[in-house]
Design a protein around this nucleic acid. Structure first.
Lengths: 193, 193
DNA sequence: ACCTGAACACCGTTCAAGT
DNA sequence: ACCTGAACACCGTTCAAGT
């Protein structure tokens, strides 16, 4: 019966899905949970922290969808597609990623967790994070335009939006695979764990 | 002496540069121009239109920096670098691009103007817009993270941020050059106009 | 035509007070 | 510990009224 952070996140996300980020205010969230707006502040610090938590869910859910036993370029491609799909599944998700201040310590752990599959494939930490970051940047950038209603309808008239994103992603990952490990194009493949 | 839209844009941009997007409110802009907040509404429709005009300046200024006589992959690469640099020159510019609703007609003209150098190099309109969009998405996505203070300081500890963006951009453009026009890798080169 | 002054509805956040 | 109720400071926007 008691209010939890998960309740707040659920209410916030469904509110954004229905009314957009502009409709996300503390009183409206509270109304859905049958409490006063001020009650939320017992469970979260402020609205910005709430956005941060929402954004972290997007990264997390995409990560959980990607099998661990892919070679690294294929892992990157698959994560990029999954993250992009996850963003498009939630209205204004790309904007939320942009507004999110990284969570206190979860940013350090999160980034490294994201990069782990690339590390175990033999990339250095720097290489892994660089590739990972470019893939995330491409997905969030595309989603940002796809989630702007006017921009999307205009782009949709001129090009195949999902196809164009995939083309860009494939091009980038292929290019990275050629430059990051030029001497090690074929990775050893699946490994347990 | 009279207030102009340019005055408002200048004041808005310098306010954002100094205090961030959070500090951009209509009354603060007006204060810098020695008018009341309500005076701004004679010249612009609302705050959202103001953000849209700021964003369009970023696209525009980057475009103006790129020479027209490059072959199309080099043109794309150069535009991507210029746009990314322009975004980083203005605090929270990537977020502003995300919040901007495309201007009434300037979006149609703007996109096609952006794509013109690619069209004259022999790409179809669809191909040109797809490549252009992926480059813009990558730049805006990277800038979004680079302009989040916490995220940036954390990324900076683990990788070379400007280098990683350039690596991603180069990889993508090279990949696009290989897939978009596989039979026409060498463009005919400079053309008058 | 262009701007002021005052107002309206709304928002994030705080905090004493309740249970 | 957890929530209410009221308040504070602030915001975008409107509009009658001035010049």
């Amino acid at each position: 019966m008691k209010l939890t952070v998960e309740d707040i996140l659920d209410a916030a996300q469904s509110l954004v899905d229905e009314e957009g980020l502009g409709g996300l205010n503390m009183r409206a969230i509270a109304r859905r949970l049958d409490v006063q707006g001020s009650a939320l502040y017992w469970h979260i610090h402020n609205r910005s922290e709430l956005l941060t938590m929402l954004a972290n869910l997007y990264y997390q859910r995409a990560f959980d969808l990607v099998p661990a036993n892919l070679d690294w370029p294929e892992w990157l491609r698959t994560y990029g597609r999954a993250f992009h799909t996850e963003l498009l599944a939630h209205r204004d998700a790309a904007q939320i990623c942009g507004l999110a201040r990284p969570a206190s310590r979860s940013v350090a752990k999160g980034l490294d967790r994201l990069a782990a599959p690339l590390l175990s494939a033999g990339l250095t930490r720097t290489q892994a994070l660089a590739c990972q970051s470019s893939v995330i940047a491409l997905a969030v950038g595309w989603a940002m335009y796809e989630q702007s209603p006017h921009m999307k309808s205009h782009l949709a008239r001129a090009l195949d939006i999902p196809g164009s994103f995939l083309q860009g992603l494939d091009a980038m990952v292929t290019g990275l695979a050629g430059t990051v490990l030029p001497a090690n194009r074929k990775t050893p493949g699946r490994r347990k764990g």
